[in-house]
Design a protein around this nucleic acid. Structure first.
Length: 619
DNA sequence: AAAAAAG
């Protein structure tokens, strides 16, 4: 180790551990192999500064033209993002780009984009990338499956490369320090999501010399530490393991210039906020303004935005689609099913599904439940009845979690029963159907869960079982479905209108979509009052009446409230005359429908046509 | 009240 290096270790600056550059890139700084070597920073051509709007506080709204996106070589989406409203608020908003070509970046990164078969940037990428390139903080909301990961990975890698070419590269090999000094940190709420981000970031960083390392719990720490020792530019991590490593003094955040929180609203909600504050505010991370901070999520409640603004400096708020909305690529169904009947109902539903989906792969079904125990129980129950299911939840050891996910992805086990560990961010191709077996407690979770299907412009299907317990969310669900242009069942509309009760926050009673940037609505925090008229009986009676009057006779649904004596047997209930949304799935060959239109057309049916129950013995 | 995240 050079003496200068030793000296540097005692200084506040980054130890000049030589940055490894692969041989083919070593001359680039001098030769200009990077397409715009002088553009980091400032960018060449019309600079980002020059291209900014002049007004101090802008609101930019626009409609987008069609986006072309490919996956695995197939053009899968031509019009999926047409008419998606985009809104950016803040000062001096950089203009969006229309193509990757407009973004000044290194040739190596360009090649990687082509390798990934990205043809055009998605809306979130078109807007977010210039913002990050222009060194601005960002809070971004974009619909699930619209390419958020790439939206922060590209520019971070690009900026790191730009910074690097401006530096003198110290030659030398094999010099290691105990402490790793990443320049970029990407935090995510689950281990699997961190792995996924790591995999994707590595693909973008291929042959650029930018090193991406992942750190998460449940796996041996030794290998992760070893990877860090070999050098790290971008660290992708879950909070617990990162704190552990910092406390062991194996990682320092002193050199962080880029901080990205994926699923940022989750990272700042009750369970996580303390840990995140510790990492961002109580370790050695540079303060806002001296680092660049990017927050991404599909949902961003106002109260969480307020917390998040502590981490940001003069940020731009960007929404693609409405905040918290789901995409209309997902056909949503809601069924009134009482808790006792859910299993029975699920198996009937599954039995009508065709084993094979499109793409020649099995149609994957993701079933969300509320609790870890419930996940195991349902996995067991399904397996015992001939449905190939596997469960994933936080009580399983990491290996089992990863095994379950692999088995599901490969189609070996086409039914995955999951807790919310799998609700956010995971990109699982070919999920045809998301079933909310237990309706989530928070409408934002619903958005994220159904977002596991309908990704990257593909269509998808979501079915929710809605029971008495879920009535507080009826209103929010109706609004969400209307926003996504879904047909709302009459009974659900009535439940929404008639339910009065205490609502804890906007997340339950959300009445406003769109508004979005909490800075522009400082005075309309909405805390609906508790209503003492929330008499369960009158409410339930009303719903039951509506349900029955509409021909949707569901004797077991509300009878425990409406009429204690009227508990007709399930056998009768599921007899020939039962109405319901899956009327047209009587033939197994018919399912799943080939496309959204077919699904929508069929779902107008008013008679059950469930096929015979393939298995028996379950309760 | 539950899930997630450290060992």
């Amino acid at each position: 180790m050079a003496w200068a290096d030793v000296q540097n270790l005692t200084h506040q600056t980054r130890p000049s551990r030589p940055t490894y550059l692969p041989p083919h890139l070593r001359q680039l700084g001098a030769r200009g192999g990077c397409s715009n070597r002088n553009s980091f920073p400032p960018p060449a051509g019309p600079s980002f500064n020059q291209r900014q709007r002049a007004t101090p506080y802008d609101i930019i709204t626009e409609k987008l033209e069609q986006v072309e996106l490919t996956d695995n070589g197939n053009v899968i989406n031509l019009d999926a993002y047409e008419d998606v409203p985009v809104e950016a608020t803040g000062s001096d908003i950089p203009l969006a780009v229309k193509s990757f070509g407009e973004i000044e970046m290194c040739e190596a990164l360009n090649e990687n984009i082509k390798r990934r078969k990205y043809v055009k940037p998605t809306p979130i990428q078109r807007h977010a990338i210039p913002i990050v390139m222009a060194r601005r903080d960002l809070m971004a909301c974009a619909q699930t499956g619209s390419g958020k990961t790439a939206a922060f990975c590209f520019p971070i890698i690009s900026r790191i490369l730009g910074d690097r070419f401006g530096q003198v590269v110290v030659s030398g090999h094999g010099v290691r320090t105990r402490i790793a000094y990443p320049t970029a940190l990407i935090l995510s709420p689950t281990r699997e999501l961190s792995c996924q981000i790591h995999d994707e970031a590595k693909k973008f960083a291929y042959q650029t010399g930018v090193k991406v390392v992942v750190a998460y719990g449940g796996a041996p720490i030794a290998q992760q530490l070893y990877n860090l020792e070999k050098g790290v530019d971008i660290l992708v991590a879950t909070p617990g393991r990162l704190v552990d490593m910092i406390e062991r003094e194996r990682v320092s955040l002193k050199m962080i210039k880029y901080l990205a929180l994926d699923e940022a609203d989750r990272m700042l909600d009750m369970g996580f906020e303390h840990q995140i504050r510790k990492i961002v505010q109580q370790m050695d991370m540079p303060p806002p303004g001296t680092r660049q901070t990017m927050l991404f999520s599909a949902t961003f409640p106002d109260d969480i935005q307020r917390l998040a603004s502590d981490f940001l400096s003069n940020y731009i708020f960007l929404t693609v689609g409405k905040v918290g909305s789901s995409t209309d690529l997902i056909a949503q169904r809601v069924e009134l099913v009482q808790d006792m009947e859910k299993r029975c109902h699920l198996m009937k539903l599954l039995s009508t599904q065709k084993a094979n989906g499109t793409h020649g792969k099995p149609a994957l079904t993701l079933v969300f439940v509320e609790t870890k125990r419930g996940a195991d129980a349902l996995e067991h129950s399904l397996s015992m009845n001939g449905f190939p299911a596997i469960a994933i939840h936080g009580d399983k050891v990491q290996r089992e979690r990863e095994r379950a996910l692999r088995s599901f992805k490969s189609g070996a086990t086409p039914i995955l029963v999951a807790t919310d560990v799998a609700s956010r961010g995971l990109d699982i191709p070919h999920v045809a159907h998301v079933i909310n077996f237990d309706f989530p407690k928070d409408i934002d979770d619903y958005v994220h869960r159904i977002g596991r299907t309908g990704r990257a412009g593909n269509s998808g299907m979501a079915t929710a079982f809605f029971s008495d317990k879920n009535m507080p969310l009826a209103k929010a669900l109706v609004e969400l479905m209307q926003e996504a242009k879904q047909e709302v069942p009459t009974w659900l509309s009535h439940c929404a209108q008639n339910f009065v009760g205490s609502v804890r926050s906007t997340r339950y009673g959300r009445s406003k979509f769109g508004g979005s940037d909490f800075r522009s609505s400082q005075n309309d925090y909405y805390y609906p009052s508790t209503n003492s008229n929330g008499d369960a009986n009158s409410f339930v009676d009303t719903c039951a009446d509506v349900y029955n009057a509409g021909g949707y006779a569901a004797p077991t649904s509300f009878d425990n409230y409406a009429s204690a004596g009227d508990r007709s047997s399930n056998a009768d209930y599921y007899g020939a005359h039962n109405p319901g949304p899956y009327a047209h799935y009587s033939s197994a060959d018919d399912y799943p429908p080939a496309n959204i239109d077919a699904f929508a057309a069929r779902s107008n049916g008013n008679e059950y046509g469930y096929g015979s129950i393939v298995a028996s013995g379950w309760d």
